[in-house]
Amino acid sequence: MKRAIFIAAALVALIPSTSILARAHHVSASMTDTQKIEAWGVKWKRQLEAGDIEPLRDMYEPDAILMSNGSPPQVGVDAILAFLTRNKTAGNAVTIDFANEEIVIDKDRAYLTAKYWMTITIPSGSVIDVMGRSFLVYKKGADDSWRLWRDIDNQAPDILTEGRPAPAS
C-alpha cells in the first residue's frame, strides 16, 4: 500500500513539469511567423559567432544556396557549412549584427531584407569589416519550422559602420 501511495505521489509530482512543457510548446506554437524568422536570425548569429557551425545544418533546406559577395555560389548544406567554417578553421573571431529592413510572409515562403555588419579579427589582431545587405528566402516545412533556402549577400555603399546596431546588453 505504501508503495502504491509513493508511486501515485511521484506521478502527481510530474504533473507540473508536464504543464510547463505544454506551456513552452504553446509559447513556441503561438509565435508569429515573423517572430520565428527573427528568432532564426538570433540563433544563426549565436552559432556563427561561437564557431559552432554544425547545428546550423537543420536551419537550411537541403538544396539551399548561399550567394555571398565575391564568392562562387555555395550549393547545398554541406558546401554552405564548409564555407561558414572557414573563419573558425583559420582561427579568426567573427561578430555579426543585423538590422532587418523588411520581412514578408507569403504562405510557406518568407522573404527577408536586412543590413549586416561583420567584423573578422584574424589571429594577428588585424580587423576586417564587411557590411552590406542580405536578401534571404525561407521555406516553411511540414514541421512548422522555417529553413533558409536562398541567401544573397552583397556589399552596399549605403551601409556604413556608423549605422551598426549597438551590442545587446
Rank of each mutant, 00 (worst) to 15 (best):
D63Q: 08
D63W: 04
A64P: 00
A64W: 01
A64G: 04
A64Q: 03
I65Q: 02
I65T: 04
L66C: 02
L66R: 05
M67I: 02
S68Y: 13
S68I: 13
S68T: 13
N69P: 00
N69V: 12
G70D: 03
S71R: 15
S71A: 15
S71E: 14
S71Y: 15
S71F: 13
P72C: 08
P72N: 11
P72A: 11
P72K: 12
P73D: 10
P73N: 13
P73W: 02
Q74E: 14
Q74P: 00
Q74D: 07
V75D: 12
V75F: 07
V75K: 08
G76D: 05
V77A: 04
D78P: 00
D78R: 05
A79Y: 01
A79Q: 09
A79G: 05
A79N: 09
I80P: 00
I80M: 01
L81H: 02
L81T: 04
L81A: 04
A82S: 07
A82H: 03
A82W: 03
F83C: 06
T85Y: 05
T85Q: 14
T85K: 14
R86C: 06
R86A: 12
N87E: 10
N87P: 01
N87Y: 09
N87T: 10
K88I: 06
T89D: 11
T89M: 07
A90R: 13
G91V: 10
G91I: 12
G91S: 10
G91N: 09
N92Q: 13
N92E: 14
V94F: 06
T95H: 05
T95C: 03
T95M: 06
T95D: 09
T95A: 08
I96L: 11
I96A: 11
I96E: 12
I96F: 06
D97L: 10
D97I: 09
D97W: 13
F98A: 01
F98Y: 13
A99F: 01
A99G: 06
A99Q: 08
N100S: 10
N100R: 04
